[in-house]
Design a protein around this nucleic acid. Structure first.
Lengths: 120, 120
DNA sequence: TTAATATATGAACATATATTCATATAAGGA
DNA sequence: TCCTTATATGAATATATGTTCATATATTAA
């Protein structure tokens, strides 16, 4: 029995090494994927773009998306957990806003990309 | 019977209007979400970062991720369909590369965000 | 304290997604 | 032409995700 478990041919060993040394830790990669995952839903993209303009409560966001407040709240939990938004309480109402400008930078680049691809 | 189907209270009518007029068309929103969806997987983030450095074939990418070539090919189809990568044939080998700089802009911002969040 | 409002959350279900396996296509060599 | 290599793709399955419904928590008013 051989030690060589994976018998896959590797065409470009050098490129593999280069990629391996240059890539960040698996944990960092996963967090980046999680960030994109948090933005990988039309409803959440809408929410983020709306929150760039003004703070809004769960109730407003539910109306904006045309979904139940429970559904909106679940969406906000994802965005909160992934550190895209934070909130501020004023009485019974929670006002959500974006945590920082990174979120809108991502939205802007995505929008540019989409326009460019579909435009030509 | 009333015309008012949705009896949800709306706390901030003005904010809703503002958000509605300012948001892009639903189709554009969906394409943006699709773009983020394409990047919402650790394997695909790795692939994109590797392709920023050099072109690579499916075989290399499969080895890099430690998955089957079939799985890697499926991933590449997603990235191709979403217009994140393109390829060039050289004999039997297909070399993949990024379509433009938007992809790396997204990766960079995501990485900055993640570092900032986890760092503090 | 009791009731009402705003939001959060857990469980369940329906849909979406990723991987595997088998097979198909495309190019090059014998 | 037949065989091999590199990649693509369809079907099936397992896991993940989003919504709904019921319920819980937090704040305010009565």
């Amino acid at each position: 029995m051989t030690e060589d478990i994976c018998e896959r041919r590797i065409i470009h060993e050098d490129r593999l090494e280069k990629a391996r040394t240059m890539l960040p830790a698996q944990e960092e990669i996963e967090r980046m994927a999680d960030l994109f995952k948090a933005m990988a839903d039309p409803g959440r993209v809408q929410i983020l773009m709306a929150l760039d303009v003004q703070e809004m409560c769960v109730c407003d966001l539910a109306a904006l998306l045309g979904v139940s407040e429970s559904a909106a709240s679940h969406q906000m939990r994802i965005l909160r957990t992934m550190n895209l938004v934070k909130n501020r309480r004023e009485g019974q109402v929670l006002y959500y806003r974006l945590v920082d400008d990174h979120v809108m930078q991502l939205v802007r680049v995505a929008r540019d990309h989409v326009s460019e691809i579909t435009g030509e």
